[in-house]
Structures are given as structure tokens and as C-alpha cells.
Design a protein around this nucleic acid. Sequence first.
DNA 1: TATTGTTATACTCTATAACTATA
DNA 2: TATAGTTATAGAGTATAACAATA
Lengths: 145, 145
Amino acid sequence: MTEENASIPELASALRPVLLRLARRLRQMRDPAVELSGNQLSALGVLLMSGDLPIGELAARELVQPPSMTRIVSALEQRGLVQRTPDPTDRRQSRVGLTENGREILLANRRRRDAWLAVRLATLSASERDLLRRAIPVLEKVNAA
Amino acid sequence: MTEENASIPELASALRPVLLRLARRLRQMRDPAVELSGNQLSALGVLLMSGDLPIGELAARELVQPPSMTRIVSALEQRGLVQRTPDPTDRRQSRVGLTENGREILLANRRRRDAWLAVRLATLSASERDLLRRAIPVLEKVNAA
DNA sequence: TATTGTTATACTCTATAACTATA
DNA sequence: TATAGTTATAGAGTATAACAATA
């Protein structure tokens, strides 16, 4: 235990700015050549994780209103990154899914950001990297709480 | 050493999504009653850290164009959170600084987000919190690299 | 009638270009 | 002539409200 006397609020206010700063830099590493907005990229990510979804569901998961998601999906569809397929049982709905091209673009973007991070992780000592490795499940727990 | 065999790229792609997700939730904890945009809040943060700055310098630090910073500062000034004071030696410039009210609003916002995080940190075990505590300087090192 | 998704419209935030005033 | 800042204007991106099609 390094200093468990230190209070939880102090840990929070020390951790917050570091996390926000690092996340901001990671987000800036979007490939400027592949012009996808943050929300477009994020929507592709949800589709990769969850498979095909109706527009409304996708909007709810992204905390965006349905009309906004209509726009986002239309833009992605025009670029061939997603496709709409009509729901056979309810003709009001159509499910949105990644195309093969969309999957590739998304994964390439992630690789790019991972590479940026990996370069920086390589400057650490092995034990520092190990510390981060063990911190991951803890951060996940914070996220889930 | 938990498993230093695991490669650096793997660490990067495990760490990235956790960081981004947590940062996103932290950002969403802005007080909706105090309607400050992300960039307005961020500009106040720079002023707190660095003291009074000319508009151009502030724009450069926030990676924003000068006209955008003019708008941001004008909005903050109208709400009494910052004030412009003319530079005595160069009448083209004016320095922007926090007002007492601006300082309070900024700090209140930070306390709010810290509190959100602290509630979640409280669900962890003492040793998990200690792990995060030791991870902070490592994350700072990654940021600086 | 209720629900899914779209279109119409307005607002916010940002950027580039052109301008004003100092230096 | 160059620089600090502003104003004018346009382009993304989002939201609310109104509408169309289907359940």
C-alpha cells in the first residue's frame, strides 16, 4: 500500500485530468485522410460490437436523437461503410449493418490509434507497463460501476 | 510481473478503449444547469493554470483559430466569467483573465466531476485504489512522451 | 392510436477570408 | 508592411417539431 491514507476524493481529482488529457490526444489521432466524424466512427464501433441494429436502437446507444442518427447512417451508407436491410417482419424498420469495407476502415482507424499509444508505451519500463496492465481491469470496474 | 510476455501492442489496444470510455463519461458529467460548452470550460481551465493570456495565445493553446477564441471569450465575458484588460504597452492586444466568479464556476464544475468519479472509486477495494494511485504517474509519463 | 424513421428547420460551434487598429 | 483581434459568412453537426408509413 503506497499511501492509503490519501483520501478517495484526492485520488479522483488526481486521476481525472490525466485520463481526460490522454483520451483527448487519443481522439485527435483520427486519420485525417479518412474523413469520418467522431460520431460516425463511434457508430461503426457499436455495429462491430453488437451486429446489425435498427436506427432507433443505434441512436439510443449513442445518446443521440433519431434524426441525427438518420443523418449519420445516411452519410455512412453513401460511402459504402454500412448498409440498410429492411426488417422482414416489420416494414417500418430497417436494420443497419457494417459492410466489409466499413469493418476494414474502422479496424484500420483503431490500429492507427493503437500504434500511436504503443509508441508511447514503449518508452516505459517493463514494470511500468505491467502496472498499467493490471490497472485495466480496475478501470473497467470503475466504468461498470 | 503479471505477464510481460504480452506484447506492447496488445497492451495498447486493451488500454485504449477503457480510457476513452471512462473519459467520455467524465466529460458528460458537466453540470447541465451551468451551460458551458466543453471549449468554454477548457479555456477557463487554461486561464486558471496559466494566468492572464492574450486571445491569440489562448487560441494556440486550445488548438482553435483566433476567431473561434474571440467568440468563446466574448461569451464568457458576457457572463462575467472572464474579463479583458488592455495591454498597456501594445494597444492591439488585450489580456484575458478569470474573474472570481469564473474561478468559482470552474472549480465547482471540477468538484462535480471529481465527486462522480469518487463515488465509483469508493466501490473498489483499497488495493485496487492503490493500484490506480500508482498508475497516475505512469499515465502522466505516457502523456508527456 | 402508437411507433419507426424521415424531412424541415433552427441553433451552436467551428473555420476561412476580409477588415480595423495598432506596431 | 506585419501583427492582434474582430466581423462576415459558410460549413458541419445536433436538436425539436411536423410528417409518412406501418403496426
